[in-house]
Design a protein around this nucleic acid. Structure first.
Ligand SMILES: [Mn+2]
Ligand SMILES: [Mn+2]
Ligand SMILES: [Mn+2]
Ligand SMILES: [Mn+2]
Lengths: 220, 220
DNA sequence: ATTTGAATTTAGCCTTGTCTAAATATTAAT
DNA sequence: ATTAATATTTAGACAAGGCTAAATTCAAAT
Protein backbone atom coordinates (compact mmCIF):
# COMPACT_ATOMS: atom_id res chain seq x y z
CA UNK A 1 0.00 0.00 0.00
CA UNK A 2 1.23 3.42 -1.00
CA UNK A 3 1.81 6.09 1.61
CA UNK A 4 0.42 9.53 0.95
CA UNK A 5 1.08 12.85 2.57
CA UNK A 6 -1.48 14.98 4.32
CA UNK A 7 -1.73 17.27 1.33
CA UNK A 8 -2.01 14.42 -1.14
CA UNK A 9 -4.77 12.78 0.88
CA UNK A 10 -6.74 16.00 0.90
CA UNK A 11 -6.46 16.23 -2.88
CA UNK A 12 -7.48 12.61 -3.35
CA UNK A 13 -10.51 13.02 -1.14
CA UNK A 14 -11.57 16.23 -2.86
CA UNK A 15 -11.18 14.75 -6.33
CA UNK A 16 -13.25 11.74 -5.34
CA UNK A 17 -15.95 13.96 -3.88
CA UNK A 18 -16.05 16.16 -6.96
CA UNK A 19 -16.22 13.17 -9.27
CA UNK A 20 -19.62 13.04 -10.86
CA UNK A 21 -21.12 9.80 -12.07
CA UNK A 22 -20.85 11.37 -15.55
CA UNK A 23 -17.69 10.79 -17.51
CA UNK A 24 -16.35 14.34 -17.69
CA UNK A 25 -13.21 14.71 -15.60
CA UNK A 26 -12.87 16.91 -12.54
CA UNK A 27 -11.47 20.29 -13.56
CA UNK A 28 -8.46 22.03 -12.11
CA UNK A 29 -10.57 25.08 -11.35
CA UNK A 30 -13.14 23.07 -9.41
CA UNK A 31 -10.45 21.51 -7.27
CA UNK A 32 -8.87 24.90 -6.80
CA UNK A 33 -12.18 26.36 -5.65
CA UNK A 34 -13.02 23.43 -3.37
CA UNK A 35 -9.64 23.43 -1.65
CA UNK A 36 -9.05 27.17 -1.69
CA UNK A 37 -5.73 26.79 -3.46
CA UNK A 38 -4.54 28.51 -6.60
CA UNK A 39 -5.08 26.66 -9.90
CA UNK A 40 -1.34 26.68 -10.50
CA UNK A 41 -0.74 24.73 -7.29
CA UNK A 42 -3.43 22.26 -8.27
CA UNK A 43 -1.93 21.66 -11.73
CA UNK A 44 1.34 20.82 -10.14
CA UNK A 45 -0.14 18.37 -7.69
CA UNK A 46 -2.24 16.71 -10.39
CA UNK A 47 0.92 15.98 -12.30
CA UNK A 48 2.40 14.31 -9.21
CA UNK A 49 -0.73 12.35 -8.39
CA UNK A 50 -0.89 11.24 -12.00
CA UNK A 51 2.65 9.92 -11.76
CA UNK A 52 1.72 8.07 -8.58
CA UNK A 53 -1.21 6.43 -10.32
CA UNK A 54 -4.10 7.61 -8.18
CA UNK A 55 -5.58 9.67 -10.98
CA UNK A 56 -5.58 9.68 -14.78
CA UNK A 57 -4.34 13.09 -15.75
CA UNK A 58 -4.63 14.42 -19.28
CA UNK A 59 -3.48 18.02 -19.43
CA UNK A 60 -6.29 20.51 -20.00
CA UNK A 61 -8.96 17.82 -19.75
CA UNK A 62 -9.49 17.36 -16.07
CA UNK A 63 -8.77 14.24 -14.05
CA UNK A 64 -10.42 10.90 -13.53
CA UNK A 65 -9.75 8.98 -10.35
CA UNK A 66 -8.29 5.50 -10.78
CA UNK A 67 -9.38 2.37 -8.95
CA UNK A 68 -6.44 2.73 -6.62
CA UNK A 69 -7.26 6.38 -6.04
CA UNK A 70 -10.88 5.57 -5.31
CA UNK A 71 -9.80 2.92 -2.84
CA UNK A 72 -7.67 5.38 -0.97
CA UNK A 73 -10.30 8.11 -1.08
CA UNK A 74 -12.81 5.74 0.45
CA UNK A 75 -10.44 4.81 3.24
CA UNK A 76 -9.99 8.48 4.10
CA UNK A 77 -13.73 9.10 3.94
CA UNK A 78 -14.33 6.09 6.14
CA UNK A 79 -12.00 7.55 8.75
CA UNK A 80 -13.49 11.00 8.47
CA UNK A 81 -17.03 9.76 8.98
CA UNK A 82 -16.21 7.38 11.81
CA UNK A 83 -14.48 10.21 13.66
CA UNK A 84 -17.50 12.42 13.04
CA UNK A 85 -19.70 9.80 14.65
CA UNK A 86 -17.31 9.57 17.56
CA UNK A 87 -17.30 13.32 18.09
CA UNK A 88 -21.08 13.55 18.07
CA UNK A 89 -22.01 10.34 19.85
CA UNK A 90 -19.29 10.24 22.46
CA UNK A 91 -17.99 13.76 22.88
CA UNK A 92 -21.28 15.64 22.48
CA UNK A 93 -20.19 17.69 19.51
CA UNK A 94 -23.00 19.09 17.42
CA UNK A 95 -23.16 18.11 13.75
CA UNK A 96 -21.99 21.55 12.68
CA UNK A 97 -18.85 21.39 14.85
CA UNK A 98 -17.25 18.20 13.60
CA UNK A 99 -15.87 19.13 10.19
CA UNK A 100 -12.57 20.80 11.07
CA UNK A 101 -11.56 18.27 13.68
CA UNK A 102 -12.51 15.25 11.57
CA UNK A 103 -10.59 16.82 8.71
CA UNK A 104 -7.45 16.44 10.81
CA UNK A 105 -8.27 13.11 12.43
CA UNK A 106 -8.92 11.45 9.07
CA UNK A 107 -5.19 11.51 8.35
CA UNK A 108 -4.08 9.54 11.39
CA UNK A 109 -2.45 6.38 10.12
CA UNK A 110 -3.43 3.20 11.94
CA UNK A 111 -5.72 0.55 10.59
CA UNK A 112 -6.14 -1.06 13.98
CA UNK A 113 -7.23 2.28 15.41
CA UNK A 114 -10.00 2.60 12.85
CA UNK A 115 -11.14 -0.99 13.19
CA UNK A 116 -11.37 -0.59 16.96
CA UNK A 117 -13.08 2.76 16.69
CA UNK A 118 -15.64 1.25 14.33
CA UNK A 119 -16.29 -1.55 16.76
CA UNK A 120 -16.46 0.83 19.71
CA UNK A 121 -19.08 2.92 17.93
CA UNK A 122 -21.13 -0.17 17.16
CA UNK A 123 -20.34 -0.33 13.43
CA UNK A 124 -22.35 2.72 12.43
CA UNK A 125 -23.52 2.82 8.81
CA UNK A 126 -24.04 6.59 8.48
CA UNK A 127 -22.32 9.68 9.78
CA UNK A 128 -24.03 12.62 11.55
CA UNK A 129 -24.82 14.22 8.19
CA UNK A 130 -26.45 11.07 6.87
CA UNK A 131 -23.55 10.11 4.64
CA UNK A 132 -22.77 6.40 4.39
CA UNK A 133 -19.62 5.04 6.03
CA UNK A 134 -17.61 2.79 3.69
CA UNK A 135 -16.59 -0.54 5.18
CA UNK A 136 -12.94 -1.49 5.42
CA UNK A 137 -12.97 -2.83 1.86
CA UNK A 138 -14.34 0.44 0.54
CA UNK A 139 -17.84 -0.85 -0.04
CA UNK A 140 -20.55 1.73 0.50
CA UNK A 141 -24.17 0.95 1.11
CA UNK A 142 -25.92 3.48 -1.13
CA UNK A 143 -29.55 4.34 -0.62
CA UNK A 144 -31.47 6.18 -3.31
CA UNK A 145 -32.18 9.71 -2.31
CA UNK A 146 -33.38 12.86 -4.02
CA UNK A 147 -33.18 16.53 -3.14
CA UNK A 148 -36.21 17.75 -1.21
CA UNK A 149 -37.06 20.30 -3.89
CA UNK A 150 -37.65 17.45 -6.34
CA UNK A 151 -40.18 15.67 -4.15
CA UNK A 152 -43.64 16.08 -5.66
CA UNK A 153 -46.49 17.91 -3.94
CA UNK A 154 -48.01 15.73 -1.19
CA UNK A 155 -45.09 13.37 -1.56
CA UNK A 156 -43.55 12.17 1.68
CA UNK A 157 -40.34 10.60 2.84
CA UNK A 158 -37.57 10.84 5.35
CA UNK A 159 -34.64 13.23 5.65
CA UNK A 160 -31.61 11.00 5.29
CA UNK A 161 -28.74 13.39 4.58
CA UNK A 162 -27.67 16.91 3.76
CA UNK A 163 -25.70 17.93 0.70
CA UNK A 164 -24.17 21.02 2.29
CA UNK A 165 -22.38 20.36 5.59
CA UNK A 166 -21.38 23.94 6.30
CA UNK A 167 -21.87 25.04 9.89
CA UNK A 168 -24.18 27.86 8.80
CA UNK A 169 -26.53 25.55 6.95
CA UNK A 170 -26.57 22.93 9.69
CA UNK A 171 -27.31 25.48 12.37
CA UNK A 172 -30.12 26.81 10.24
CA UNK A 173 -31.60 23.32 10.05
CA UNK A 174 -31.30 22.94 13.82
CA UNK A 175 -33.08 26.22 14.28
CA UNK A 176 -36.04 25.37 12.09
CA UNK A 177 -36.24 21.84 13.42
CA UNK A 178 -35.13 19.74 10.49
CA UNK A 179 -32.95 16.75 11.35
CA UNK A 180 -31.70 13.47 9.94
CA UNK A 181 -34.41 10.87 10.33
CA UNK A 182 -37.34 13.28 10.35
CA UNK A 183 -40.42 12.13 8.38
CA UNK A 184 -41.61 14.83 6.08
CA UNK A 185 -44.41 15.57 3.67
CA UNK A 186 -44.44 18.33 1.07
CA UNK A 187 -47.63 20.30 1.63
CA UNK A 188 -47.01 23.26 -0.65
CA UNK A 189 -44.88 24.09 -3.66
CA UNK A 190 -44.63 27.68 -4.80
CA UNK A 191 -44.21 27.67 -8.56
CA UNK A 192 -42.84 31.17 -8.71
CA UNK A 193 -39.57 30.72 -6.80
CA UNK A 194 -39.51 27.02 -6.06
CA UNK A 195 -39.87 27.50 -2.33
CA UNK A 196 -41.82 24.84 -0.44
CA UNK A 197 -43.57 24.10 2.79
CA UNK A 198 -43.16 20.77 4.53
CA UNK A 199 -44.80 19.05 7.45
CA UNK A 200 -42.30 17.48 9.83
CA UNK A 201 -43.25 14.43 11.90
CA UNK A 202 -46.92 15.36 11.44
CA UNK A 203 -46.40 18.09 13.97
CA UNK A 204 -44.73 21.16 12.61
CA UNK A 205 -44.57 22.98 9.31
CA UNK A 206 -41.44 24.54 7.88
CA UNK A 207 -41.29 26.97 5.01
CA UNK A 208 -38.03 27.00 3.06
CA UNK A 209 -36.45 28.36 -0.11
CA UNK A 210 -35.66 26.18 -3.09
CA UNK A 211 -32.00 26.62 -2.27
CA UNK A 212 -32.39 25.15 1.18
CA UNK A 213 -34.61 22.34 -0.05
CA UNK A 214 -32.04 21.45 -2.69
CA UNK A 215 -29.52 20.70 0.03
CA UNK A 216 -31.73 18.32 1.96
CA UNK A 217 -31.79 14.73 0.75
CA UNK A 218 -34.89 12.60 1.01
CA UNK A 219 -35.44 8.88 0.87
CA UNK A 220 -38.95 8.33 -0.43
CA UNK B 1 -1.13 31.76 21.14
CA UNK B 2 1.59 30.75 18.71
CA UNK B 3 0.95 28.05 16.15
CA UNK B 4 3.57 25.40 15.70
CA UNK B 5 4.07 22.83 13.00
CA UNK B 6 4.08 19.12 13.52
CA UNK B 7 7.85 19.01 13.39
CA UNK B 8 8.26 21.93 15.76
CA UNK B 9 5.90 20.35 18.27
CA UNK B 10 7.88 17.14 18.23
CA UNK B 11 11.07 19.07 18.95
CA UNK B 12 9.46 21.04 21.76
CA UNK B 13 8.14 17.91 23.40
CA UNK B 14 11.44 16.11 23.10
CA UNK B 15 13.40 19.03 24.51
CA UNK B 16 11.04 19.25 27.46
CA UNK B 17 11.33 15.53 28.11
CA UNK B 18 15.11 15.63 27.93
CA UNK B 19 15.30 18.60 30.24
CA UNK B 20 16.81 17.51 33.51
CA UNK B 21 16.05 19.29 36.74
CA UNK B 22 19.76 20.21 36.70
CA UNK B 23 20.78 23.40 34.99
CA UNK B 24 22.84 22.01 32.13
CA UNK B 25 21.09 22.58 28.82
CA UNK B 26 19.85 19.83 26.52
CA UNK B 27 22.50 19.00 23.93
CA UNK B 28 22.09 18.89 20.16
CA UNK B 29 23.35 15.34 20.11
CA UNK B 30 20.84 14.17 22.70
CA UNK B 31 17.99 15.64 20.72
CA UNK B 32 19.40 14.12 17.56
CA UNK B 33 19.57 10.71 19.19
CA UNK B 34 16.12 10.93 20.74
CA UNK B 35 14.43 12.01 17.51
CA UNK B 36 16.55 9.99 15.12
CA UNK B 37 17.52 13.04 13.12
CA UNK B 38 20.97 14.24 12.17
CA UNK B 39 22.63 16.77 14.46
CA UNK B 40 22.83 19.21 11.57
CA UNK B 41 19.05 19.20 11.20
CA UNK B 42 18.66 19.72 14.92
CA UNK B 43 21.03 22.70 14.98
CA UNK B 44 19.00 24.35 12.31
CA UNK B 45 15.71 23.82 14.07
CA UNK B 46 17.13 25.01 17.38
CA UNK B 47 18.01 28.31 15.75
CA UNK B 48 14.44 28.68 14.53
CA UNK B 49 12.87 27.69 17.84
CA UNK B 50 15.19 30.12 19.56
CA UNK B 51 13.96 32.91 17.31
CA UNK B 52 10.39 31.95 18.10
CA UNK B 53 11.10 32.19 21.82
CA UNK B 54 10.27 28.66 22.94
CA UNK B 55 13.85 27.90 23.87
CA UNK B 56 16.95 29.80 24.94
CA UNK B 57 19.60 28.83 22.47
CA UNK B 58 23.27 29.57 22.98
CA UNK B 59 25.36 28.02 20.24
CA UNK B 60 27.45 25.05 21.40
CA UNK B 61 25.95 25.12 24.90
CA UNK B 62 22.69 23.27 24.52
CA UNK B 63 19.21 24.67 24.98
CA UNK B 64 17.00 25.59 27.90
CA UNK B 65 13.27 25.60 27.43
CA UNK B 66 11.51 28.89 28.17
CA UNK B 67 8.30 29.32 30.17
CA UNK B 68 6.38 29.63 26.92
CA UNK B 69 8.06 26.53 25.54
CA UNK B 70 7.29 24.59 28.69
CA UNK B 71 3.67 25.65 28.47
CA UNK B 72 3.40 24.36 24.95
CA UNK B 73 5.26 21.14 25.72
CA UNK B 74 2.86 20.42 28.54
CA UNK B 75 -0.13 20.98 26.31
CA UNK B 76 1.24 18.45 23.83
CA UNK B 77 2.02 15.98 26.60
CA UNK B 78 -1.47 16.44 28.01
CA UNK B 79 -2.94 15.54 24.65
CA UNK B 80 -0.61 12.59 24.17
CA UNK B 81 -1.46 11.09 27.55
CA UNK B 82 -5.20 11.66 27.29
CA UNK B 83 -5.21 9.91 23.94
CA UNK B 84 -3.19 7.06 25.44
CA UNK B 85 -5.84 6.66 28.12
CA UNK B 86 -8.54 6.71 25.47
CA UNK B 87 -6.82 4.04 23.40
CA UNK B 88 -6.37 1.73 26.38
CA UNK B 89 -9.60 2.35 28.26
CA UNK B 90 -11.98 2.66 25.37
CA UNK B 91 -10.41 0.94 22.39
CA UNK B 92 -8.75 -1.94 24.23
CA UNK B 93 -5.22 -1.14 23.12
CA UNK B 94 -2.52 -2.61 25.32
CA UNK B 95 -0.09 -0.22 26.94
CA UNK B 96 2.67 -1.19 24.55
CA UNK B 97 0.58 -0.39 21.48
CA UNK B 98 -0.36 3.21 22.11
CA UNK B 99 2.84 5.14 21.49
CA UNK B 100 2.81 5.52 17.70
CA UNK B 101 -0.84 6.40 17.44
CA UNK B 102 -0.79 8.87 20.35
CA UNK B 103 2.28 10.43 18.78
CA UNK B 104 0.12 11.42 15.83
CA UNK B 105 -3.04 12.25 17.72
CA UNK B 106 -1.21 14.63 20.05
CA UNK B 107 -0.89 17.13 17.18
CA UNK B 108 -4.57 17.47 16.42
CA UNK B 109 -5.49 21.08 17.08
CA UNK B 110 -8.72 21.63 18.98
CA UNK B 111 -8.96 22.70 22.57
CA UNK B 112 -12.62 21.76 22.78
CA UNK B 113 -11.75 18.27 21.55
CA UNK B 114 -9.29 17.78 24.37
CA UNK B 115 -11.54 19.24 27.03
CA UNK B 116 -14.35 16.95 25.95
CA UNK B 117 -12.05 13.95 25.72
CA UNK B 118 -10.81 14.64 29.24
CA UNK B 119 -14.36 14.83 30.52
CA UNK B 120 -15.37 11.71 28.60
CA UNK B 121 -12.53 9.77 30.19
CA UNK B 122 -13.51 10.95 33.66
CA UNK B 123 -10.62 13.41 34.12
CA UNK B 124 -7.88 10.79 34.49
CA UNK B 125 -4.80 11.89 36.41
CA UNK B 126 -2.34 9.34 35.01
CA UNK B 127 -1.76 7.69 31.66
CA UNK B 128 -1.37 3.93 31.08
CA UNK B 129 2.35 4.13 31.86
CA UNK B 130 1.74 5.89 35.16
CA UNK B 131 2.79 9.30 33.92
CA UNK B 132 0.82 12.26 35.22
CA UNK B 133 -1.55 14.13 32.89
CA UNK B 134 -1.09 17.91 33.07
CA UNK B 135 -4.31 19.87 33.50
CA UNK B 136 -5.31 22.47 30.94
CA UNK B 137 -3.19 25.11 32.65
CA UNK B 138 -0.14 22.90 32.48
CA UNK B 139 -0.13 21.99 36.15
CA UNK B 140 1.13 18.50 36.88
CA UNK B 141 0.46 16.58 40.05
CA UNK B 142 3.85 15.07 40.84
CA UNK B 143 4.19 12.18 43.20
CA UNK B 144 7.55 11.21 44.65
CA UNK B 145 8.82 8.02 43.14
CA UNK B 146 12.11 6.17 43.01
CA UNK B 147 13.50 3.46 40.73
CA UNK B 148 12.83 -0.02 42.05
CA UNK B 149 16.56 -0.83 42.21
CA UNK B 150 16.94 1.88 44.84
CA UNK B 151 14.31 0.45 47.16
CA UNK B 152 16.01 -1.07 50.17
CA UNK B 153 15.86 -4.74 51.10
CA UNK B 154 12.48 -5.59 52.62
CA UNK B 155 11.20 -2.21 51.57
CA UNK B 156 7.79 -2.15 49.98
CA UNK B 157 5.70 0.14 47.86
CA UNK B 158 3.62 0.34 44.76
CA UNK B 159 4.53 0.35 41.08
CA UNK B 160 3.34 3.73 39.83
CA UNK B 161 5.09 4.22 36.53
CA UNK B 162 7.70 2.99 34.08
CA UNK B 163 10.64 4.98 32.83
CA UNK B 164 11.00 3.11 29.57
CA UNK B 165 7.82 2.90 27.50
CA UNK B 166 9.20 0.83 24.67
CA UNK B 167 6.95 -1.94 23.47
CA UNK B 168 9.62 -4.55 24.22
CA UNK B 169 9.97 -3.52 27.84
CA UNK B 170 6.24 -3.22 28.43
CA UNK B 171 5.56 -6.63 26.95
CA UNK B 172 8.26 -8.07 29.17
CA UNK B 173 6.53 -6.58 32.21
CA UNK B 174 3.22 -8.04 31.09
CA UNK B 175 4.83 -11.42 30.72
CA UNK B 176 6.36 -11.51 34.19
CA UNK B 177 3.26 -10.02 35.75
CA UNK B 178 4.35 -6.54 36.78
CA UNK B 179 1.79 -3.80 36.28
CA UNK B 180 0.99 -0.25 37.35
CA UNK B 181 -0.65 -0.35 40.75
CA UNK B 182 0.93 -3.62 41.89
CA UNK B 183 2.05 -3.68 45.53
CA UNK B 184 5.57 -4.95 45.79
CA UNK B 185 8.17 -5.85 48.39
CA UNK B 186 11.86 -6.32 47.77
CA UNK B 187 12.75 -9.70 49.20
CA UNK B 188 16.26 -10.12 47.85
CA UNK B 189 19.05 -7.93 46.57
CA UNK B 190 22.03 -9.53 44.87
CA UNK B 191 25.07 -7.40 45.64
CA UNK B 192 27.12 -8.78 42.79
CA UNK B 193 25.09 -7.55 39.82
CA UNK B 194 22.35 -5.49 41.43
CA UNK B 195 19.59 -7.86 40.39
CA UNK B 196 16.67 -8.24 42.77
CA UNK B 197 13.72 -10.40 43.64
CA UNK B 198 10.37 -8.90 44.51
CA UNK B 199 7.10 -10.19 45.86
CA UNK B 200 4.09 -8.93 43.93
CA UNK B 201 0.72 -8.54 45.67
CA UNK B 202 1.89 -11.04 48.30
CA UNK B 203 1.36 -13.77 45.76
CA UNK B 204 4.08 -14.08 43.23
CA UNK B 205 7.81 -13.51 43.14
CA UNK B 206 9.66 -11.98 40.22
CA UNK B 207 13.39 -12.02 39.70
CA UNK B 208 14.78 -9.18 37.59
CA UNK B 209 18.02 -7.56 36.52
CA UNK B 210 19.16 -4.20 37.84
CA UNK B 211 18.50 -2.76 34.40
CA UNK B 212 14.87 -3.79 34.48
CA UNK B 213 14.42 -2.64 38.06
CA UNK B 214 15.88 0.74 37.19
CA UNK B 215 13.06 1.31 34.73
CA UNK B 216 10.28 0.61 37.18
CA UNK B 217 9.20 3.50 39.41
CA UNK B 218 7.98 2.93 42.93
CA UNK B 219 6.01 5.08 45.30
CA UNK B 220 6.95 4.04 48.82
C1' DA C 1 -11.97 29.91 -40.29
C1' DT C 2 -10.59 33.37 -37.09
C1' DT C 3 -10.78 35.60 -33.07
C1' DT C 4 -10.98 36.00 -28.30
C1' DG C 5 -11.77 35.01 -23.40
C1' DA C 6 -11.56 31.64 -19.90
C1' DA C 7 -9.18 27.74 -18.18
C1' DT C 8 -4.98 25.65 -17.54
C1' DT C 9 -0.16 24.99 -17.40
C1' DT C 10 4.65 26.52 -16.97
C1' DA C 11 8.35 29.13 -14.99
C1' DG C 12 10.43 31.02 -11.27
C1' DC C 13 10.42 31.99 -6.45
C1' DC C 14 9.64 31.01 -1.37
C1' DT C 15 9.31 28.33 3.10
C1' DT C 16 9.80 24.17 5.81
C1' DG C 17 12.34 20.39 7.08
C1' DT C 18 15.48 17.08 6.03
C1' DC C 19 20.28 15.37 4.51
C1' DT C 20 25.74 15.08 3.66
C1' DA C 21 30.16 17.05 3.79
C1' DA C 22 33.10 20.48 5.48
C1' DA C 23 34.37 23.86 8.88
C1' DT C 24 34.73 25.29 13.55
C1' DA C 25 34.26 25.34 18.59
C1' DT C 26 34.64 22.97 22.94
C1' DT C 27 36.54 19.64 26.00
C1' DA C 28 39.66 16.16 27.44
C1' DA C 29 44.23 14.37 27.47
C1' DT C 30 48.67 14.86 27.42
C1' DA D 1 49.69 25.10 26.90
C1' DT D 2 49.17 22.27 23.02
C1' DT D 3 47.00 18.77 20.76
C1' DA D 4 43.56 15.36 19.80
C1' DA D 5 38.91 13.85 20.02
C1' DT D 6 34.23 15.03 20.14
C1' DA D 7 30.34 17.95 19.57
C1' DT D 8 28.24 21.36 17.04
C1' DT D 9 27.40 24.50 13.41
C1' DT D 10 27.53 26.05 8.59
C1' DA D 11 27.08 25.49 3.66
C1' DG D 12 24.88 23.63 -0.01
C1' DA D 13 21.50 20.37 -1.91
C1' DC D 14 16.90 18.37 -2.28
C1' DA D 15 11.81 17.32 -1.91
C1' DA D 16 7.20 18.89 -0.78
C1' DG D 17 3.80 22.32 -1.35
C1' DG D 18 2.54 26.63 -1.75
C1' DC D 19 2.34 31.43 -4.53
C1' DT D 20 2.46 35.10 -8.62
C1' DA D 21 3.06 36.27 -13.25
C1' DA D 22 3.46 34.84 -17.88
C1' DA D 23 2.58 31.65 -21.54
C1' DT D 24 -0.31 28.39 -23.69
C1' DT D 25 -4.40 25.76 -24.97
C1' DC D 26 -9.27 25.03 -25.61
C1' DA D 27 -13.73 26.27 -26.84
C1' DA D 28 -17.19 29.53 -27.86
C1' DA D 29 -18.62 33.19 -30.73
C1' DT D 30 -18.47 35.44 -34.42
MN1 LIG E 1 -8.22 16.46 5.79
MN1 LIG F 1 -20.10 14.04 7.37
MN1 LIG G 1 4.30 13.52 17.84
MN1 LIG H 1 2.58 7.37 28.33
Amino acid sequence: MNKFSFAEENYIKTIYELTDAGKKGVSTNDISAAMKLKPASVSDMLRKLGEKGVIDYRKYYGVHITEEGKKHALSIIRKQRLWEVFLVEKLRFTWDEVTDVADELEHVQSSILIRRLDEYLGFPKFDPHGDPIPDEYGDVRVRPRIPLNEVELNGSGQIVAVKDSSAAFLRYLDKVGAYIGARIKVIEKVEFDGSIEILVDNKKTIFMSKDVAGNILIMV
